[in-house]
Nucleic acid binder design. Structure first.
Lengths: 396, 396
DNA sequence: ATGTATTTGTTGGTTGACACAACGTATCAC
DNA sequence: GTGATACGTTGTGTCAACCAACAAATACAT
């Protein structure tokens, strides 16, 4: 590593801290990075000069001494976040600091193709940029419900959307004129929760998301997202738990996904196409209903049992610090009683079980877009100076 | 990160390359690290000056141009590696470069206590050092068959040895007068295979070891050992595969360890207390025996099926580049036919399954000691200059 | 044998990033 | 106000890595 790389690394570390905390004082930066005050001053000055951050005098007073200015993320630099789904393409502009600046859900009466997704996204990003004068869109990230090769953002298989072996990041990058990265939606949900949600500050974390099309997940190891060799890690839905269990869409038997499907919960509460919030509310109500809640209670207990077996394996394998549950798995968690919650990890090895905490996801429906934005920010935060000089920048 | 840290990092990177390859040319170092020739020259000079490496003219000639001297690890700097087991304390001195310089197995007629292990180790290390004049023993690493808290080398539980909540690294460090680290034996086997064995060069790797006391394992993520939050990761033996399966020593049901025990293979071939090599040979012979091999074939097939279900889950969860099998799991692999080998990963998601290769472990009975030595080298390689100035050094 | 191309080590000077010390400045407590 | 505290600012110093020019050692062609 040469001296230039050292500078890039430190600039990157400062920008990353500002991003994660949505603004920190210079004094905080000095403490967090262990660098000299004058060096921090210099680094911040470079970032200000390049337009990444602003210095403001609105930091909370923390005691005696000269107050330290707050280094705040620029509110004009944004990235685009995209999430194609069954009947909608969800697009947002997300600022440094992880705030959604603008969002538009483009409803469709059919499942989008890749080509449609590219053109729709491209139009929508331009519209959003036009509606928000002054913002610069620097890069884009896509959350895809399926297996995505991380290296080049190529979609291997998105069964839900009917996509198979389709390049996605490359054509979208051409259409938008900016760098584009794509990844699996659950991975990005995991990233979002780890950066801004229920997993803030954790080193090793496991995220499981239950959705209509199955159970996906993501892993964070030593504070960094772990995507596996090609980007396909985190498929917790396909842990084999019961050789005699029901057949799974993946071809095997007794996967967690087949044993704890969202549909079964929806049926148990008698709703049609509820969103996650509605399902959770109905489930909590049904479980609390002493008279008519038997079916719901039974299904919840059944799914919690399988979830516990899956978590046992994952905890023993990974010794995580935290497990974050999203989607219908969060709903299960919320309507479980204390003993059910305890039994979720009861069968794991005690040493590992003692250190793990389980939390429901915190970011709700913004999760995937924030995660996709994180993916887009990656390259920019890693090399903030090169990025400004080198990248194609779309300005409204 | 300041300039001093940069220097330390680069020194450390050079020393690490020399360690992993047992010697590299200066030209190789410039290519691998991307630093200037003069910088590499400087870094190597510092390491030579501090006694970590020697420069020799015995590099293989690689073509035209001035030959580059070989930077070889010092053969006098060693660490101690220790592996307490049921009826033996195995101790070795391991050089930079991963070579076992000296080894002594201290046989016992009983299971050693922690206190015995400490005194036996301490004596044996001094003896080995005395037998090898000139070597400096700089640190020690212990491979423990049980759960070890990585932070402080405290043994949470080693059922095999009857140890429970016993400090180990701390008293041994006092006895030896040098830094001591301890970790789980399967973790260290994993490290050894990843550094010098069947996993060299892999980014994400999974290691499973089958032994008389169960199935353990280790993980490597992005080229670095992944120990989990407290050091208990890698317990692949306790993936729950069958809710109706046999009870496991851990208290749960249907763990891989309970479904594919070494004992069952030993029984199937009718041996008593064979070592891994003997078991493997007998198993291969029995499976090839058309007349009398039915019992062995059946048990091998049964265990391979369960191993496949476990690997399915692990592959889907981690998308590893390589899976390394040790102990009786390697024996299973060696006597499996092509179709059985293929079916091991057949049920995993195709995208992940396509990228993974399975290999039997390569380092045999040296694995644990080499891994324990790696643990000891960690701190020294991370800060080679500070280590020499600061550490207590035992000289023969 | 000789010369040329190629690769690498060596040397002295230069650049750049961060540290340090001294000083200036803004707040709090009294 | 006054002192204590904490922090930003400025100029100087140090150290690590780079660079360019040169020297050395090999392979290969003639």
């Amino acid at each position: 590593m040469d001296a230039g790389a050292l500078r890039r690394r430190n600039l990157s570390a400062v920008l990353d801290l500002v991003h994660r905390h949505g603004g920190v004082t210079r004094a905080d930066l000095t403490r967090a990075l262990g660098l000299n005050r004058s060096t921090i001053g210099d680094l911040v000055a470079v970032l200000v000069e390049h337009g990444w951050v602003d210095e403001r005098d609105d930091a909370p007073r923390s005691g005696v001494g000269r107050p330290s200015p707050r280094v705040a993320p620029s509110d004009t630099r944004v990235v685009a976040a995209v999430n194609p789904e069954l009947d909608v393409v969800d697009v947002a502009l997300v600022s440094l600091g992880g705030q959604i600046v603008a969002r538009r859900r483009v409803d469709l009466d059919h499942v989008p193709t890749v080509a449609e997704t590219v053109t729709l996204t491209s139009h929508t990003v331009r519209e959003l940029a036009a509606d928000n004068p002054g913002v610069e869109v620097l890069a884009a990230g896509v959350a895809v419900p399926g297996l995505v090769r991380g290296r080049d953002g190529h979609v291997r298989l998105a069964p839900h959307l009917g996509w198979r072996e389709e390049p996605l990041a490359a054509p979208l990058s051409v259409a938008l004129g900016m760098p584009v990265a794509a990844s699996n939606d659950a991975h990005l949900g995991c990233r979002a929760e780890q950066t801004f949600g229920a997993g803030v500050g954790t080193g090793t974390m496991l995220y499981l998301n239950g959705g209509p099309s199955g159970i996906g997940g993501g892993l964070v190891v030593d504070g960094r997202p772990m995507d596996g060799t090609a980007g396909y890690a985190g498929e917790l839905g396909h842990l084999g738990l019961d050789p005699e269990g029901p057949a799974c869409a993946c071809g095997a038997r007794g996967c967690l996904e087949a044993l704890a499907p969202r549909d079964a919960l929806v049926q148990a509460v008698g709703l049609e196409h509820p969103d996650d919030d509605a399902l959770e509310a109905a489930l909590v109500a049904a479980v609390a209903d002493e008279v008519g809640g038997d079916a719901a209670r039974a299904e919840v207990a059944r799914q919690l049992r399988w979830l516990g077996i899956a978590l046992r394996g994952a905890i023993n394998l990974l010794n995580p610090e935290r497990i974050v549950l999203g989607g219908h798995l969060a709903a299960l968690w919320r309507c479980a009683d204390e003993s059910q919650r305890a039994s979720l990890i009861a069968d794991a090895l005690p040493a590992s079980a003692a250190e793990v905490t389980i939390e429901p996801a915190a970011l709700g429906s913004q999760r995937l877009l924030i995660g996709a934005a994180e993916l887009a920010w990656d390259g920019l935060i890693a090399a903030p100076i090169d990025a400004v000089q080198g990248a194609a920048v779309a300005t409204a």
